[in-house]
Design a protein around this nucleic acid. Structure first.
Lengths: 133, 133
DNA sequence: GTAAAACCTCATGTCGACGTGAAGTCAAGG
DNA sequence: CCTTGACTTCACGTCGACATGAGGTTTTAC
């Protein structure tokens, strides 16, 4: 009894800081499949909770539910490839956001009404693609 | 005639690398208001094009169209505050993404089926909020 | 002068990740 | 036993940023 036994969806959701229907939604898109009681009620044990926590982490990390599901349902080799792809995306985003920070700083200082007149501004015109995530 | 005269929406869109209906959409939400020909056709001069380019930059920078509109329609003081707020957001996102990169690297190496057993994984459980943008 | 291409407005559809509400079943307290 | 609250499924609503299509006018090229 030191380790918590299986919880119902409400308590599990509370433990995760989300609402029950979110857990149902994740399940409906194939991310989770907690066991059911004989009467059909979902039952979340530590394993399921940890699975949900992992989903939370990856989601905060900017992965879509689809990407998370792919990660889960792939073999080692493919996992590594997917993770590498996500890391590459992540680094692209970081680079873009760092440039963004610079640009915002510049915007605060420059305030040129005509961006073409400002070399820094025009530099920015050339960068970027519309964010894959 | 060295400088290009006003273009129609199709050419403007092509120059910006987007589609015409996107320009119409931006206009419909109050971001842009290019002059019209007598017959009602939109006319994009250099000024309007630069405005659109700025929108593109800010959008790539992660701002919503709403936030971009706010930036445009605010006085100096308020602008500075908004810019500062966006920079703060940006830096939060960068921090999260850097942590993300670490975590993905760890995921590739660790591959613990039970994240609770992994101190690095559990560390991650505690962080983050659901991304304001 | 006419036909195709580009423009106009307005309405409706899409996508991802939920949010919301209806209608019914199950579980726990008194 | 009966109420109250948590659970179930199913269906439809929401939000942001477009995408798509209908139906009509204007411009352009021949």
């Amino acid at each position: 009894m030191a380790t918590a036994q299986a919880m119902k969806i409400g308590d599990a959701a509370a433990a995760l800081g989300i609402e029950a229907h979110v857990l149902r939604h994740w399940e409906s898109v194939g991310l989770l499949a907690p066991p059911r009681s004989r009467s059909g009620h979902r039952s979340y044990d530590e394993h399921a909770l940890n699975h949900a926590r992992l989903i939370q982490i990856l989601q905060r990390a900017g992965l879509s539910l689809d990407q998370i599901r792919q990660l889960g349902s792939s073999a080692h080799e493919e996992r590594l490839a997917l993770i590498a792809a996500r890391r590459a995306e992540t680094r692209d985003r970081i680079a873009l956001l760092q440039a963004t920070d610079q640009f915002l700083a510049h915007l605060a200082a420059c305030s040129h009404p005509i961006i073409a007149e400002c070399p820094e501004c025009s530099d920015f015109t050339k960068k970027g693609d519309p964010m894959p995530g």
